[in-house]
Design a protein around this nucleic acid. Structure first.
Lengths: 225, 225
DNA sequence: TAGATTGTTAATCGATTAACAATC
DNA sequence: TAGATTGTTAATCGATTAACAATC
């Protein structure tokens, strides 16, 4: 099935294509070309064709891609047709926002339990998900193994939680804690690390254009971009 | 100053090095080698030396890098010594969590105002940040220009907000809305798009190992990793 | 048919790795 | 000095782009 190693960036772009396909589908488009697929994405049509070619031939030469068909193919490639159960650890501010975030459910990604140390939260439902005592995480994973976990605890607790999850058989982790965590090589991690993103943003901002220490302002009220 | 074009990934890695340096500093280490700097990061020492070489020579041959010195240098490279004011749009669940998130403040990244359509929220302070009516965004940016904005509105409202921000002179955006947004080329964007991260995670999970449709479980209670 | 667009190959570009002289 | 580690160059690797024959 996989003749060659798929570049990580190709998989990221598949998500982008999927987004565009869904948009075109809502608008009623039947067919889309590789150029249209990538117009707003800073990607060339050739790149999209190359990316898709890793997985097969989904288009019609001289025509383009049938929108619904390509969407289904990409969904299948990404594995979105399967249900994925997950647990969340840390039902604080961020954890609560995540439990109530509709984006998870939309992708067959279901949070089946949350864990928190705060006894006041235990027993409640947040976003429809029951909150359990942090101490029960290991035993829960033994009874009901899940492959995916979301870490939303404070940074200093993150590594201990991660170790516990890995010991419990979790093999993919979405980490929101601002820490670099040590994992065995087989564990997939996505670190949604805001501090890192902020640092990247600041770096580029600090170098972009002739930006002085203060934002350039036309003192008559207009803003100089 | 910049002889060559710096790879984007190099900047990401600078953030990682910074994290490790801070950890070593807390532990009281004076000196760190490129190998130690990268041990837990799936990066080779050579890679770190190469990355740092884009910006200068910060180490001592035969010795390593002085921890505090290198940390300061990287902070300066990233622009973390400057204060950056920012606005946040959308004080819903996620927006509120972000306003209360200490990570922003820690990096001289200060949220000076939040905007929301909900009159019930207007006038309140969330995380110490005043919430203003969404309609005042443009006039606020005219009075008090900022370079950075955080978008935390629902997907369907995101493009309109983005257009308004760009018109108001914002040149860097941290986007949490699950949408691909159209921006002029000079605007820096970081899309912390959970749906996309989830899709990437699922893709890799679906292909990793011989994972069947159901998680492989030893029915006696143990989990087969 | 003429025009359009794919899938794929070859050429280009850029980033990572390995190696080692210079240095402490 | 002997051992260690940097900074940097050259070699390798991989990903992107351009081009075009095949196809609708």
């Amino acid at each position: 099935m996989r003749e060659k190693r798929i570049p990580v960036e190709t998989v990221r772009r598949l998500s982008l294509y999927l987004r565009t396909l869904r948009l075109f589908e809502r608008r009623g488009a039947r067919v889309i070309s590789s150029a249209e697929l990538t117009r707003h994405l800073d990607i060339t049509g050739a790149q999209a064709r190359r990316d898709l070619a890793y997985f097969g031939s989904f288009g019609q030469p001289g025509v383009g891609y049938y929108v619904g068909h390509l969407r289904e193919k990409i969904e299948a490639i990404l594995g979105l047709h399967r249900n994925w159960e997950a647990v969340l650890v840390g039902a604080g501010k961020l954890g609560t926002a995540l439990l109530e975030y509709p984006g998870f459910r939309r992708y067959n990604f279901r949070l089946v339990a949350a864990f928190d140390r705060d006894r006041g939260k235990v027993g409640r439902l947040i976003g429809g998900v029951p909150v359990r005592p942090a101490g029960e995480l290991s035993s829960f994973l033994r009874r009901q193994p899940v492959k995916i976990a979301v870490i939303a605890v404070p940074g200093r607790a993150a590594q201990a939680v991660a170790d516990c999850l890995v010991a419990g058989g979790v093999s993919a982790i979405l980490n929101f804690a601002p820490r670099y965590l040590d994992f065995p090589a087989h564990v997939q991690i996505k670190s949604l690390d805001m501090a890192m993103e902020i640092e990247g943003l600041i770096y580029h901002l600090a170098r972009s254009g002739p930006a002085a220490e203060e934002p350039p302002v036309d003192r008559d009220g207009g803003v100089v971009i």
